[in-house]
């Protein structure tokens, strides 16, 4: 199964792109906290056995990422420092996120937070939280 099938929402991406282009051209920011989407961008999916969280956090050292599960909430936080701009350098475009970030995801009740695992590769953080076995769909034999 391809990526497209899992997230078949290109129309929204297209609308968002148009919105982003408009924001960029007009220079407006509808929310007082800036663009409505938080940083980092995240995808969350569920399977019958786990909850899978993907956070797009490029350019960090894995050890600087703080991933916690507390009271059914997964929190991902860290800090991305902007590269210092040396003297005599002109900044033409500055779009990349810098500063502290924190994002929360509410997890289903049946997760087993003690068995969660996380990996960081190519700037993508992947957290996998298994669900407790008792609530997995189970077929009951009829004799």
């Amino acid at each position: 199964m391809g990526y497209r099938n899992l997230f078949p929402r290109e129309i929204f991406a297209e609308l968002e792109r148009i919105q982003r282009d408009m924001d960029r051209n007009i220079g407006r920011s509808p929310s007082i906290r800036g663009p409505s989407k938080g940083y980092p961008a995240m995808n969350v999916g569920t399977t019958s056995g786990s909850v899978e969280i993907y956070a797009f956090v490029p350019g960090l050292e894995p050890s600087s990422l703080d991933v916690q599960i507390e009271k059914g909430m997964l929190s991902i936080s860290g800090e991305r420092n902007a590269d210092a701009v040396p003297e005599g350098t002109t900044v033409h475009i500055s779009e990349r996120f810098s500063g502290k970030f924190r994002r929360l995801v509410s997890l289903p009740e049946d997760i087993d937070s003690g068995k969660a695992s996380a990996s960081y590769r190519d700037g993508l953080l992947h957290v996998s939280v298994p669900r407790r076995e008792a609530v997995l769909p189970r077929r009951i034999e009829v004799h």
Binding site: M1, F7, P8, M42, N43, G45, T46, T47, E52, F56
Partner: peptide, 13 residues
């Protein structure tokens, strides 16, 4: 992606 995953929140599509 894991087999049979159902998306519940999508920023990057």
């Amino acid at each position: 992606m894991p087999e049979g995953m159902e998306a519940i929140h999508v920023d990057i599509d």
